[in-house]
Design a protein around this nucleic acid. Sequence first.
DNA 1: CTTCTTGTTACTGA
DNA 2: ATCAGTAACAAGAA
Length: 270
Amino acid sequence: MPELPEVETIRKGLSKLILGKIIARVEILKPRLVKYDTNGFVNKLTGKSVADIQRKGKVIFMRLSSGDFLIARLGMTGQLVFGKGNIKEKHARVIIGFKDTSRLVFNDTREFGYLHLADPQEKKRIEEKIGIDALDPKFNYEYLKYILRNRNGMIKAFFLDQKKISGIGNIYADEICFDAKIRPNRKIQSLNDTEIKKLYNSIIRILKLSVEKKGTTFSDYVDASGNKGEFQHYLKIYKKEGKPCSRCGGFIKKTRLAGRSTRYCESCQK
DNA sequence: CTTCTTGTTACTGA
DNA sequence: ATCAGTAACAAGAA
């Protein structure tokens, strides 16, 4: 579920809820979802606290008081929910209990996400493998044009590839293409400067608006306090197949692209 | 029963 | 080397 706006909402929420709290115990319910060794994971967390929380693309980096990083990848259905007392979570995979008895629970129904403890060198290495964050101030129109040069895939596949730009997933890729009036299957080389500019503006507009609305809740996504997002009420194309296009009344078609379901308006997206 | 799902990676073939 | 398509991880909804 979580793409950039959802992960950013979680990051902001956690930053208000857990910074400085001393970790008293760590319960690993699904060892497979902890990289890499279970004992080291518990030992390196116990007695430490989270000093600050960063994000790049869809990845959360929690810097510990020790200097190590607790890295969270949420996959499709991962959640990081803070709570007090006993929370009955059916799909809890890791529970981090704080000294004051509050706790942070990593839930993940489909188990595609994982937690990872890394020293500063490894954290840097992981961070460098991820492309520029789509809301990084350094990501401007010239930057997008630069990373698109010499490429010739379909624009949506490019957006989904986290090594080029990070943070855009299947929902926002379709919403961005719709907003820019560009078909998701357009070849990169066929895009002129005006179209690249429109795509750039749409990336920023859509992602910022969704961060404002605290992300999209379709099924699993909740923020660090367990609340749903609001951006699902603003979606224009995702899951709208069969309905008339809100912009032009045209037919919204569903296809498959880069292995993912893809929606676009046959009339106003060129 | 089937097909679908917000992510990522490995593998295949072109 | 680059690109497109598929399966795999696993669980649940329709």
